[in-house]
Amino acid sequence: MSSAIGGPLPEAAAAVDKRVTDVIRAAIIRGEYAPNQRLIEADLSAAFSASRATVRTALLELAGEGLVERLPNRGSRVRAISVDEAIEILEVRIGVEGLCAAKTAASISDDDAAALERLRARMIESVAEGDLVEYSRLHLSLDNRIRELSHHATAADVLARLHAQSVRHQFKLSSRPQRAKVSVLEHAAIIDAVVARNPDAAERAVRSHLLSVIEALREVSAAESEAPAT
């Protein structure tokens, strides 16, 4: 659909911009683009069948989220986020995500509670079947849904930015079968507390989960630093 002067409608252009931004964000989170890798607009434009202007808009949006660095006269690259920085972000997320979980528990409807219980079952099933890619997708879906159901716009905005920056490290952890078996039980505990409409328990469950993630990141980082060079 076009406007009267022949160009795309603003709504359509915005939808295209969002699609490209979402695709590039997801690729960075999954590790398809390595930290410090250059993001060349012409290559991205060809890969995603989008205009250079659309790709540029997407990279600016992702730079605002802290996932991309804009280099003066040199384009863009994937921002490298250290384990120490990821841990600091997780420490901040403890308070804000706990708030969202508590708000959700205090006001959740029966229909939304039932939907969370179905999501809980699918998460457990995905780990049991060894489908860790699906588990990672569902776990991100849970995080997003609790933010939405909290109806706390400021907290949701803060978390959207913090989550994008630390989730790459969490995605890496989720690909480890033993960690996923621990993580899924922690997520189930969050859902149980929210569905039980117990704000205090929901906040505690979030705190317990994110402290567990921090400890796991420290362990993985220590193991990788001690591994002999190949």
Rank of each mutant, 00 (worst) to 15 (best):
residue 206 V to D: 13
residue 30 R to I: 15
residue 214 I to Y: 06
residue 102 A to K: 05
residue 185 L to A: 10
residue 7 G to E: 13
residue 145 R to M: 07
residue 90 L to M: 07
residue 104 T to I: 13
residue 156 A to E: 11
residue 182 V to S: 11
residue 224 E to L: 00
residue 155 A to G: 08
residue 122 R to Y: 08
residue 141 S to P: 04
residue 124 I to D: 02
residue 108 I to M: 00
residue 45 S to C: 09
residue 135 Y to I: 04
residue 124 I to R: 00
residue 80 A to Q: 04
residue 34 A to T: 09
residue 21 T to D: 04
residue 181 K to N: 10
residue 32 E to F: 11
residue 160 A to I: 13
residue 83 V to N: 09
residue 122 R to V: 07
residue 8 P to M: 14
residue 167 V to N: 09
residue 61 E to H: 02
residue 196 A to I: 09
residue 10 P to W: 04
residue 31 G to S: 02
residue 164 A to I: 10
residue 133 V to C: 01
residue 193 A to I: 03
residue 160 A to S: 15
residue 191 I to F: 00
residue 48 F to C: 06
residue 72 P to A: 11
residue 187 H to S: 04
residue 194 V to D: 03
residue 120 R to D: 15
residue 125 E to P: 01
residue 112 D to M: 01
residue 120 R to W: 11
residue 85 E to W: 03
residue 166 S to M: 11
residue 100 C to Q: 15
residue 4 A to C: 03
residue 212 S to Y: 07
residue 230 T to D: 14
residue 148 E to T: 01
residue 5 I to R: 01
residue 210 L to W: 12
residue 158 V to L: 14
residue 90 L to R: 02
residue 127 V to K: 13
residue 215 E to V: 14
residue 191 I to T: 03
residue 113 A to K: 01
residue 108 I to T: 00
residue 99 L to S: 03
residue 81 I to M: 06
residue 65 E to I: 07
residue 143 D to F: 05
residue 142 L to H: 10
residue 129 E to C: 07
residue 101 A to H: 04
residue 193 A to K: 05
residue 195 V to L: 02
residue 97 E to W: 09
residue 199 P to N: 03
residue 159 L to R: 07
residue 3 S to M: 13
residue 230 T to P: 15
residue 86 A to E: 11
residue 227 A to F: 09
residue 133 V to I: 05
residue 126 S to P: 03
residue 78 V to S: 06
residue 227 A to G: 02
residue 115 A to G: 01
residue 48 F to N: 12
residue 147 R to M: 14
residue 185 L to N: 06
